[in-house]
Write a protein that binds this DNA or RNA. Structure first.
Lengths: 349, 349
DNA sequence: ATTAGCACTCTTTATCATCGAGTGCTAATC
DNA sequence: GATTAGCACTCGATGATAAAGAGTGCTAAT
């Protein structure tokens, strides 16, 4: 469909446009890229490419601009041809920085977002681990003082969640231990969903004497479980968007930044693609949400054990430096997976 | 220094400018505000006011614009005269919304920021509680499995912090209990600072047999304590700034939004003022940081018990609707104090 | 099939005149 | 003596017009 020369011309145009953000004319191509043909020939090729939907003209006397379709072609080839080598020195540097700065998982995610946006100079997105499948490893009720009890949940993936609650009656240490043991016995190893179901089934009739207390604790556990696998998302370098002339328009900038302020939307966007695969790229109009239909989104995943549990990504204008961003994200994908392994241990799955 | 009529003129100009964001001319004042004098008189008064530093002229043939000094006067009078009544119906509404949406403290803070920016349509800032003075109520080591121990710290203010750590050796449940008890006995009731000092003093020579384990745990406690009183800050409604014509300039908007992205700076800004007092207002050039020298910042505090532990605020153009914002913030100050009291109990201080 | 050449299109930029809001001064008025 | 009407003047905003420049697309020559 596209002969070799057309491809070369298209590539040249894309490259030029990615760098300059200005419509590319035939003369630019014939002079700066060594295709050995005159600008008139390029003009004809460009005309063809436009007809095929790979190029757009902002107006009659402007140069051409690559269409989303062109980027799609470009990116697909990029991903196919490319030798997946990784700059190991850079990788280790980043890893070190991340480890030193991030004691907690949320910190790790936030810092990753920060570094990614810093080195790519686009806006970065990072999602905290999603651990829906995670199983309960330990549950414990701890008396803090006469009137307060602390509920502690630990998941196999090492996430801890606790909730304080108050009681009026006096509950003895023994009673608490009994309940702790009972709950541990019953719920340990279950996934969040299973626990929810078990709770709904009212499996706790066995413990008549402590029913009052249990009735108070169950909803707390339920709520805590919910909280535990609640994902969060961070955007960093949002103002980087101002660096791109396509966002010199206030309304555009506003709409982009507003979008980045809405965490729910961002989660949707990140989860929109599957949770599988290496690098995923969504180009311009391929995006579902209006405000980012002129953006490209590149995401990758990170894992814990065999399970993909989160995503990080970069978002910017469609004329993004795909290659550079892909490489950067690969670095982070590997690093975060390794660091999480370290932080959370290596649970069986 | 300012006679009554000058004051009235100044007020009229400020009011007009707050609404319209456009330089105010003498004719506007004489027509729309009922001062009973002609525009020529107003012109003379304006000329005087300019000389006194209360008004500025963007250029010869524009109207006048209030200076920071004018806003300062305006605001000081506002705060003095104003009858501090609170719309109790609105207050209860907000309180209800906050309580329903916010199970955790961080959520409460975030939601507050969200609601504040929604109802004021400015950018809101909210700082999480600062509990430096908070004392340790409980410390416990909990075995999760053979190789993992959970360290739990509970402060008197009810904040819980935990850290998982791994051990190679087997440590018996008994040993852990011993250590837990020992630490509780030694550290309970101490403030963070005191604990740090106690730790530094190496007070733990008493426990020879368990020294290995203690040496591992101490730094973890130390780190956790640090984390516990780390403040966080949220900004919401940042893109509201686009609603104001003074930020139609891309560079301005960018600089503002970039500033709001930097949490460290925001903390500085919020803590910059004292932690005391009811409402604090910083106008334009009174701000230390360049990017917000054309903004006004209104903050108030919230408390736990007798102690001021956090701040919330609103930031926007100097021609802010001070009155409305002040009232809104008062509502939140009271509400958050009440809700925190509920959530965290009422510790003695 | 390629290319030189040229007319044509459309944006960008600069220039200039005009308009109007607003000031500041002066002289008349209360 | 304070107020005000009147008017010349200032200066940004608006819009029209022209010139420049970049690029296309067609035609005819190679």
């Amino acid at each position: 469909m596209l002969d070799d020369r057309k491809l070369k011309v298209l590539h040249a145009i894309i490259n030029s446009y990615i760098i300059k953000a200005e419509p590319v004319g035939s003369r630019t191509i014939s002079k700066q890229y060594d295709l050995g043909v005159s600008s008139a020939t390029i003009r004809n090729e460009m005309s063809d490419l436009e007809e095929l939907g790979y190029l757009n003209k902002p107006h009659t006397s402007a140069g051409r601009v690559p269409s989303d379709k062109a980027y799609r072609l470009y990116v697909d080839q990029l991903l196919k041809l490319e030798k997946r080598k990784m700059d190991m020195k850079k990788k280790e540097m980043i890893k070190k920085a991340l480890i030193e700065e991030s004691q907690e998982i949320d910190e790790l995610i936030r810092n990753s977002a920060k570094i990614i946006s810093a080195i790519t100079s686009y806006t970065s997105l990072a999602m905290s681990p999603q651990l829906k499948e995670s199983r309960l490893k330990h549950i414990q009720l701890l008396p803090i003082d006469e009137a307060e009890i602390l509920v502690i949940l630990v998941s196999e993936s090492g996430i801890v969640k606790n909730t304080m609650f108050k009681v009026e009656e006096n509950i003895s240490q023994d009673q608490l231990s009994t309940i702790s043991n009972f709950l541990n016995h019953k719920l340990k190893g279950m996934s969040m969903d299973e626990i929810d179901r078990t709770i709904d089934d009212g499996l706790f009739k066995e413990m008549y004497e402590l029913k009052n207390i249990l009735d108070r604790i169950i909803p707390i556990i339920s709520k805590s479980l919910e909280d535990m696998d609640e994902v969060d998302v961070y955007a960093d370098g949002v103002t980087n968007i101002f660096n791109f002339p396509e966002y010199a328009d206030l309304d555009r900038a506003r709409s982009f930044i507003s979008f980045m302020e809405d965490k729910d939307l961002l989660i949707e966007v990140l989860l929109g693609d599957t949770l599988e695969g290496d690098i995923e790229i969504t180009i311009g109009s391929e995006n579902i949400y209006e405000p980012i239909k002129d953006c490209s989104l590149i995401t990758t995943t990170y894992r814990l054990g065999d399970m993909t549990i989160g995503k990080i990504g970069v978002i910017g204008p469609t004329r993004m430096e795909y290659f550079r961003v892909i490489n950067a994200l690969r670095l982070f994908s590997v690093n975060m997976t390794e660091i999480l392994d370290m932080l959370l241990g290596n649970p069986r799955v």
